[in-house]
Design a protein around this nucleic acid. Structure first.
Lengths: 192, 192
DNA sequence: TAGTGATTTCAGAAATTTCTGAAATCACAG
DNA sequence: CTGTGATTTCAGAAATTTCTGAAATCACTA
């Protein structure tokens, strides 16, 4: 591997991190490299920079493409493919969230739904279904929220993010207004 | 493996899923088993139910304990350890979030910070730092938000969740009130 | 202190994943 | 069509991870 030291640290870290996610070392490293490169990079150069085989690069890029995490570019009069990542980090975040949901959450939801359709044949199964149903409900709540907020423009999303828990203050304010409208008096005990 | 069919599907699914996360098959299966079991289970029984070696169970339970995902119980006059998961799925979610942050996000943040401290020695490094700084900013925003909302009581969190993007409606309402206060007229273009 | 059963450790076996080089395929130019 | 270079495929090699059984440790009792 022959990279500026500062880039190398980043690339190596992403390699290690890669394995903590489902992704593997090489895929992580390639992604990191593309992310910090000032211009699109061709496969040959990736192989050289990271000191890995050309075929490994090919397969890893395929993986990254399956994740929608890289963009293909072309130069005039050059048949080779060049690769980059999207410029906008928010866009990257959205893609990542979407793909992880698709791979990690959706299959679980569908298994849960399927199991919950079945008739329990014993007390043990009845209890198991009860637990799975709790899990199912929670995951559904989370994905609904996600489907909802992912529609927001980035600017709005950022605002929401920076508010953090302070939005609950707004909710309390709203509650006061609402209960004021109903009872002509603020009711601080109202939490719904 | 000798389990009620409905439980078995669940356990097998979590096993497969486990590998898509950083966690391994056995760990996933054990967790699933504990999650749906009506009472705490001892190591021997886990090994038997899943058809794996006693020592594998021991190591996997250790892993789950490192994740704070299991609870140890004891029966009177029985030296064996029995294991369960917390009852409250929200609590499980919180633990999961916390542990994943600790393992996946925090190390990245600290690597980024470290690299950003260094002096770039070339244009390539300057550009790389610029990109890493974008990433760093985004991750910090996300973790601040997380640190903030994780403090909320579950009930409040659930409310927030079910509101989803509708909270932006509240923000707009607030904006109107605020700008009304300032200019004596609502200003619909105000987005901040 | 010796004995008993539960649990953990750990070296190596087994399984799985990742990576490579050689060959195949593909896309285009002449 | 033929040649050229880029890219992909894929069988097996290499590396890594997971799992096991045997031995060690531990906690407690008699």
């Amino acid at each position: 591997m022959n990279l500026p030291p500062l880039v190398q640290s980043f690339v190596l870290h992403f390699g290690e991190m890669g394995s903590r996610w489902g992704i593997n070392r090489t895929v992580g490293q390639i992604y990191a490299l593309l992310f910090v490169s000032p211009a699109p990079v061709c496969a040959e150069e990736i192989a050289e920079s990271l000191g890995i085989s050309r075929s490994n690069v090919s397969m890893s890029l395929r993986e990254l493409q399956a994740w929608n995490l890289v963009i293909l570019k072309h130069k005039p009069d050059d048949r080779r493919d060049f690769f980059t990542t999207p410029d906008d980090v928010w866009q990257i975040l959205r893609t990542l969230a979407e793909e992880r949901k698709k791979r990690e959450v959706d299959p679980t939801l569908s298994v849960l739904r399927e199991i919950l359709m079945q008739r329990p044949a014993s007390d043990a199964e009845r209890h198991a279904q009860q637990r799975m149903s709790e899990m199912h409900t929670l995951i559904e709540q989370l994905t609904h929220w996600y489907e909802d907020v992912k529609q927001l423009e980035t600017e709005r999303l950022a605002t929401l993010l920076s508010l953090g828990a302070k939005v609950t203050k707004l909710l309390e304010a709203k509650d006061r207004v609402v209960s004021l409208g109903r009872s002509r008096r603020p009711n601080p005990a109202n939490k719904s």
